[in-house]
């Protein structure tokens, strides 16, 4: 069993599907509107390491790392990543990935790593692992392998040592999900993360794909909504200077004029509509959530939801 569709997963699937994968499975089954997809399970990665004998090699490289020396971390990372990228994916795994991809009937997918130690309540690996958007069939396998190797970027290695995870076996699953070409996208904290007010949720929204917001390279609109009666407490409209849009299979940075970028990204009615979805997600998980969302053709999609770890 190397692959499971979202429907076959739930929140207990973290060890095989990673935090992200498990969460997408859980949401799909809870009828939360997530874009469809499947997970290349951690067992695939492990099988891959075994068949290629890379597991032994990687371990010996990591042993020699002095994590206080950035050069040593970088050298180790380079070596390991080259090894993973250069190895050939076992044929049965490759076939299965391709078969599931076809079932999605989507030209573009997002390929994301989903570390099995990620998203647990204690370690928020915010932005630590990699994402490949707009992946087509041609690059699919290559990007899955890149996601595997993202477990060994310098900052991931550094993070492992910082969090004393370097001796634990950390595996990685890969999420393959239909791309949502969002007109507006953003993030939502179902509890105000600054004031820690449990009666308020914070929604951030920006034009285009969500990557610009997640990475912090644009300042999004901020909306604050009261969770009891869904009254809007604050609307802070930013002037978005650029947005990420898809062109072919590439993401382009598109400049926005102050007039275009200074528009309110979601209308009041849309804000309220989304707030209701977000509250339901929180209710389902019985814990404050950090949600990534997208809006396209009149519909909201949830691209990720995980517990807020810093409350």
């Amino acid at each position: 069993m190397f692959i499971k569709s979202f429907k076959q997963l739930n929140k207990k699937s973290v060890s095989e599907a990673g935090g992200k994968g498990a969460s997408l499975g859980e949401m799909t089954n809870a009828r939360i509107p997530v874009p469809p997809g499947f997970v290349v399970l951690a067992s695939s990665f492990e099988q891959f390491l075994k068949e290629t004998d890379l597991d032994v090699e990687i371990e010996s490289i990591l042993k020699k790392v002095n994590h206080k020396d950035i050069n040593s971390v970088e050298r180790a990372s380079e070596k390991i990543r080259a090894l993973i990228a250069g190895a050939k994916m076992p044929r049965d795994i490759a076939e299965k990935i391709k078969k599931h991809f076809k079932l999605l009937k989507s030209r573009f997918v997002a390929v994301r790593s989903s570390a099995t130690a990620e998203d647990s309540s204690t370690d928020a690996w915010a932005g630590q692992l990699e994402t490949y958007l707009n992946t087509t069939e041609k690059d699919l396998l290559k990007n899955v392998q890149k996601c595997w190797s993202s477990l060994f970027t310098p900052r991931a290695i550094f993070y492992r040592f910082e969090k004393k995870l370097h001796k634990k076996f950390v595996s990685v699953a890969v999420v393959v999900q239909t791309m949502v070409q969002s007109e507006v996208s953003g993030i939502c904290f179902t509890v105000h993360p600054v004031t820690k007010d449990y009666n308020q949720m914070v929604i951030e929204a920006g034009f285009g794909l969500g990557e610009a917001i997640v990475s912090g390279s644009v300042t999004p609109d901020t909306y604050i909504v009261h969770k009891d009666d869904f009254s809007i407490l604050d609307i802070n409209v930013s002037e978005q200077s650029m947005m990420i849009v898809k062109s072919g299979n590439k993401n382009l940075h598109k400049k926005l004029s102050p007039r275009a970028g200074g528009k309110q990204k979601l209308t009041g009615k849309q804000i309220v509509e989304f707030a209701k979805i977000a509250k339901n997600i929180e209710k389902h998980y019985k814990h404050p959530q950090d949600i990534e969302w997208a809006y396209v053709k009149g519909k909201f999609y949830i691209t990720q939801s995980r517990p807020i770890t810093t409350l």
Binding site: G127, P193, I213, G216, T222, T310
Partner: peptide, 17 residues
């Protein structure tokens, strides 16, 4: 202190952590 980003930007997450 940052020029851009919202309360879910990297700086904000790290600050809380």
């Amino acid at each position: 202190v940052t020029d851009s980003g919202g309360i879910t930007s990297h700086a904000a997450i790290v600050a809380r952590e």
